[in-house]
Design a protein around this nucleic acid. Structure first.
Lengths: 215, 215
DNA sequence: GTCTATAACAAGATAGAC
DNA sequence: GTCTATCTTGTTATAGAC
């Protein structure tokens, strides 16, 4: 049942990637089927053989890429270490296209009856859950400011998203990965300004050449 | 030169409000002139007498409401106390419509050549500036985690925006004002869990009946 | 599986009457 | 200042040939 790959879906994958690009450039409503089709060397009607409606294509885009993947981690019942999330933000800074597509879609999704609304509602719920688990594992039940891991997780998700918007609009002015590590520094037990330092500069170790955290 | 009010603009103001509503509901591209016109009892062409193009109307919407107004505060060279910002977030939780309109527009604006792009780029720059001033005034040059006020301000803006998205999608699950105060707690010198407390619950004093921080 | 043709609208914009 | 009429273009979707 669960496919997306290994089927006859070579073409489908191509189309979904193209659709993601076009959405990034022009938003969901601005992304026309013709523009997507052209990018893969098809006519609009040729494309519609693979995706019968525009909304079907959107759903495929949403399913294909799970942004930071904290969500899927949470789904699997395992929380990611915060360091991995930081690396993920770093990796995202390398792929403006995908970040842009999901920023646009997330913004659009708050709109009345938007087809991606349920997706993003669920996604954030999962991210908050997964983030809370990660924070609890790392710092225990009591964080700086007296926050619970749950409440801190809400902030964590907000920071990741909010930084993306600022970074996309002005990459020169906003160092997204550094800013995210700043937030992590806020969450780390503050007493030792020198000591444990687990979230300082230069935390890019996982090779940036990997297939990618997205999938 | 600078008008927007006091002119013959009674009708213009009506139209701009209607446009904000429609944008909130359907996004910028989805907001048709006809829909806006209908809301104020005009035909599409009647509306275009006041705003010759759709983009002109968008500009008016952008100018009219300066979201949290931290931006305009920064423009005037005065930083707002953080407590006022917290009240602003609280007030925003009361006006989902405007928050939604600006969330949609901000998301849209990262799109290629979007007419609101310059607006939001400038807005965030001002917000970061104003936020940094406010943070410096409140906490000095060195914040928890070793952050500078400038870097903390970037996070502050990200938190406000990111929380809005989560809150709009799921108001039951996310208490936006409380979450924002959580973030402020992270920034407040943590040593005293009881002492100075300037950002604790129940900080809603400016009468909620005021004309509103927006304008 | 991909194409051509085309239906069926919807949108922003212009011209000009009242 | 607001309306009717209309142009033009763009967009999703269907039908059916190859």
């Amino acid at each position: 049942m669960a496919r997306t790959r290994g089927e006859r879906g070579a073409r489908r994958v191509e189309i979904v990637q193209a659709a993601t690009e076009v959405i990034a450039e022009r938003g969901y409503r601005g992304a026309t089927l013709a523009a997507v089709a052209e990018r893969v060397g098809l006519t609009q009607q040729g494309l519609m053989h693979h995706f019968p409606t525009k909304e079907a294509l959107l759903v495929a885009v949403l399913e294909a890429r799970d942004q930071w993947d904290m969500a899927s981690a949470a789904l699997h019942g395992r929380a990611w270490p915060l360091e991995v999330v930081a690396d993920l933000v770093e990796y995202n800074a390398t792929r403006p296209g995908i970040v842009q597509a999901f920023t646009v879609l997330a913004g659009d999704s708050v709109t009345e009856g938007h087809p991606a609304q349920e997706f993003f509602r669920g996604r954030y719920a999962h991210v908050r859950e997964g983030g809370a688990q990660a924070l609890r594992a790392e710092y225990g039940d009591r964080l700086p400011g007296g926050l619970s891991p749950e409440r801190a997780a809400t902030l964590l998700a907000a920071v990741v998203d909010g930084l993306q918007v600022q970074w996309l609009l002005d990459p020169e002015a906003v160092d997204m990965p550094a800013a995210f590590r700043d937030f992590l520094a806020l969450l780390a037990p503050p007493p030792r300004p020198q000591g444990t330092d687990s979230a300082q500069p230069g935390s890019a170790r996982t090779e940036p050449e990997r297939a990618g955290p997205h999938v």
